[in-house]
Design a protein around this nucleic acid. Sequence first.
DNA 1: ACAATTATGATAGTATTACTGTTATATTTG
DNA 2: CAAATATAACAGTAATACTATCATAATTGT
Lengths: 228, 228
Amino acid sequence: MHTLLSNLKININEKIFLKDPESSDLGKRIIENSILLIDDIGFDAFTFKKLGAKIGSNESSIYRYFESKHKLLIYLTSWYWSWLEYQLVFATNSIADPKEKIEKAITIFTQTATIDSNFTHIDEVVLKRIVINEYSKSYLTKEVDKENKDGYFLIYKRLVTRLHDMILSVDNTYKFPFSLASTVIDGALHQHFLKDHFTTISDLKKSDTPISYFKDLVFKALNISNHE
Amino acid sequence: MHTLLSNLKININEKIFLKDPESSDLGKRIIENSILLIDDIGFDAFTFKKLGAKIGSNESSIYRYFESKHKLLIYLTSWYWSWLEYQLVFATNSIADPKEKIEKAITIFTQTATIDSNFTHIDEVVLKRIVINEYSKSYLTKEVDKENKDGYFLIYKRLVTRLHDMILSVDNTYKFPFSLASTVIDGALHQHFLKDHFTTISDLKKSDTPISYFKDLVFKALNISNHE
DNA sequence: ACAATTATGATAGTATTACTGTTATATTTG
DNA sequence: CAAATATAACAGTAATACTATCATAATTGT
């Protein structure tokens, strides 16, 4: 498994950065530490100046990689979705049975992340926390239509479409394949948030994952039996 | 068990404001025009200075009502949820049949808003757009746990609980009543957003509403027949 | 009526943010 | 080893998100 993926590189739309952070040591330190710092103080309080202080580098140097912290957030979340896509394809590609395939997909989307040693400078567990807490801010902006046209959300949309396709291959008469797909993907993030912060309106306990909820939901929506 | 709404006054937690905006003419102008301005330029670009210019008042006067624009957003979204709660209770209270009741509830949560002439200074249609585009920003913060303790999100959580109760009264063996309730309420907002901005991953057309999707989803989840 | 209270307005000031621009120095490469 | 490139250091700017002070206008209580 490790040898098979040793040359793996997550590809991000070049419009998102000024200079590819994967192309240098400083770039990688920017990515690694921005994840840690955003998780620590939150995206709203996060600045390039603070990041510079953390990595012993200068604010202006960081601006040579990303033109704004907003673009950095888009980069980080795109990286996350791309990484999830690779997990999804890798785990479901060989499965022939549509039911089994979608079951596996739901697992991928709802489970808590684990470290992937293929990408040493990125802590996927922390990154997932960022996606849960900050992803919405990347598209809930006045510029969303323009940035969408520029392909900033392509990987995310491709992931939704992949799940959409799996849904249709289980039941091609189902009328809301896109809605159900985005409900699972975005809803999974949201249920994690509710579990952590609004505990009184969550069915989940601390270390729980919304996997059984979404399996039950999707299986019933598509009229397939749920064998646990 | 919830108490029924006794009048049409929307009550907001007093910790959210410094001075009740309902108590003065200036206060009402702040509410009315902040809704229009946030809708116009987005919450991120919105400032009290710009709002002051719009209403011919001073920045410092607005600060006497709300200590930050964040609190104003909490106020506006709380108002929206409270208004929705009143709609929900008003429309479902007299319905005895649990199926019919939940069907009506889903309609309330998924439909596009219409003007309510009981509140002349608030444009509910525009306010709903704000909730769709900005609500997440009110809780996706580092202060969420503290603010939650202070009751800032109480009305929203009470709404989720009301739907949770309806779900259980249809099927009290259902295992995920809270998750399903928040999926409908928050998912409805999100599906509206996707329809407007990420059209390629939406099943809905321009003037559509996600009502049939959520009805189908909930009815199947709760094993009740869907008679359209 | 009029003093006291309260509400609003005008203005100034502050630390921080989110950058841009310029120059200097260090590192890499051909 | 010169040239190109990358990074660092620093200055500067307009805007943001406030706080603080004082003046004036409107309301209220007796």
